[in-house]
Amino acid sequence: MARQLTIKAKPREDKKPNAIRREGFIPATLYGHGFESKSIQINARAFAKIPHKAYSALNQLEIEGDDNCTVLIKDVQMDPVKDKFLNIEFLKIRSDEKVKVKVSLNFIGHSEAVVAGGVLVVSHNEVEIQCLPQDIPDSIEVNLEEIKEIGQSIHIKDLKVSSAVNLLQHPDEILVKVEIPKEHKVEEEVPVEEALAVEGAAVPAEGEAAAPAEGKPEAGKKEESAKDKGK
């Protein structure tokens, strides 16, 4: 199990969330099965220093004037443009109750297929598991050396985890695959007149049913425009 980090928090002030954010804090919520939820706030700078790995590990939450508790970071909302934290959800855990958590994958080794010229495509960087809090692994190892030829892949069912851990994703889901390198086609520009001639042939007679494939969605209703000109 990973080292437990301590996150300091204080009870939420009676202000609007944006006012709290302006003061350098992040609005957060603490909840859990059988506990009354609490609104808290966390120092934004301090939270930004927490490594990504801690998101799937147990942490200690110290609330000013309250008891410490063991929590999981359940959700982190971020502004996609400014990269600022908007809101955090903490799940107060019970040692006798299983939790669902996303654990990061640790890719080790080098695939022979990649050395031979294949492209390694990683579809998942983390997997969702269900287990008791004390059984949460730091990470799950994926050995890339198992991929020997181009076209081979590693699936969820190939992961080696302890018996206490349940993998929640479909066993046939692909985690990582080595694909054939593609020669990227750079099509030559077709002259506009030729392209229009081809499009004209492809457009179905009844325009309503299907939209055409390329460039111009629909040629139709030229008659209308001719009428307009006449006006």
């Binding site: 969605p217 629909e218 425009s225």
Partner: peptide
């Protein structure tokens, strides 16, 4: 789909044709 009215056409007479 984005529609456009043809050039030099007066306003009215409905929405233009889908162009791109």
């Amino acid at each position: 789909p984005v529609t456009k009215k043809p050039a030099e056409v007066r306003m009215g007479s409905g929405k233009g044709n889908p162009e791109f």
